[in-house]
């Protein structure tokens, strides 16, 4: 049976793997220097020397896309890292504490959930200065609630199992129970949630860069490429199409990976014929 390698997992894994490879490759080789301005070839059409053409400064689009993949991955890692590092313990804590403290945690969680992520990022940018890092920390913080929610519901299920009861009856304290029993049994949930959040973070970075609150020039970023293409939307639509496509494919890849992992790890499907 092919549940272990379902189509979503294969396609998603392939796309994400490809992005990682391209990002790694860009460290050692790109067709051109991605930041090299050459006014003699401004807005060049795709050709053998510039496969995807050049932008308004004469920079090679393909090279920019390749280096931009680095930004995208960096962005995702930071945002998901922040969200997971805060969200997972908060979720587990909320599941393991008695009714009142748990309510307080989850209600404040809901409060944060109601706060628009982009607004938070723009506020962060205004206070700490616009940069990829501040934007992503803000996006990460904004994703904490959804992480905490998912992990809490998973942890609650684990807390209700008899093996946790047995561990308590043997004298295990709460922290070891969280580390030994709860965490390993919600790892699959964390993985799934992380890949979905990754997609959200990539989109958010693009949106922020588009608005001018994200990655500062000259570091290439797919979102900023999109923003810079605005004025040429009718004369040279390819400038918007290529980064737009890259974002769409990356988001699709991470979402597929998330779906695939969910199917792969769903305990209801495990060990069932």
């Amino acid at each position: 049976m092919n549940r272990r390698l379902n189509p979503s997992l294969i396609v998603g894994g392939f796309i994400v793997g490809l992005i990682v490879l391209i990002a790694l490759l860009s460290f050692i080789w790109t067709p051109y220097d991605a930041t090299l301005v050459d006014s003699s070839i401004r807005l060049a059409k795709p050709s053998w020397s510039h496969w995807f053409g050049t932008d308004k400064f004469g920079r090679d689009i393909l090279s920019q896309l390749m280096v931009g993949a680095r930004t995208t991955l960096f962005v995702g890692l930071v945002a998901v890292g922040v969200a997971a590092v805060i969200g997972v313990p908060v979720g587990i804590l909320a599941a393991m504490t008695p009714r009142w403290p748990s309510e307080v945690i989850m209600r404040s969680n809901d409060l944060l959930l109601a706060f628009p992520a982009l607004l938070l990022a723009i506020m962060f940018g205004a206070v700490f200065g616009a940069s990829t890092l501040t934007a992503m920390i803000a996006i990460g913080i904004a994703t904490v609630p959804s992480f905490a929610r998912v992990i809490r519901s998973g942890a609650l299920q684990v807390m209700r199992t008899e093996y946790v009861l047995a561990a308590r009856a043997a004298g295990r304290r709460p922290v070891p129970i969280a580390v030994r029993h709860v965490l390993p049994n919600v790892v699959s949930l964390i993985t799934v949630q992380a890949s979905v959040s990754f997609a959200i973070a990539v989109l958010a970075e693009a949106a922020l860069s588009f608005l001018g609150y994200g990655t500062a020039p000259p570091t290439p970023s797919w979102g900023r490429m999109l923003q810079e293409s605005q004025e040429f939307l009718f004369s040279a639509p390819r400038l918007a199409v290529f980064p737009g496509l890259a974002i769409a494919v990356a988001v699709l890849g991470f979402n597929l990976l998330g779906d695939g992992l969910r199917d792969r790890f769903d305990p209801r499907l495990e060990d069932r014929r």
Binding site: T161, E162, A166, A170
Partner: peptide, 18 residues
């Protein structure tokens, strides 16, 4: 915790699958 030990009903949920 040493002197009193429990055996539960559900053989599925009483052992940590991981």
């Amino acid at each position: 915790r040493e002197n009193l030990q429990l055996v539960f009903q559900d053989p599925m949920s009483s052992l940590d699958p991981r």
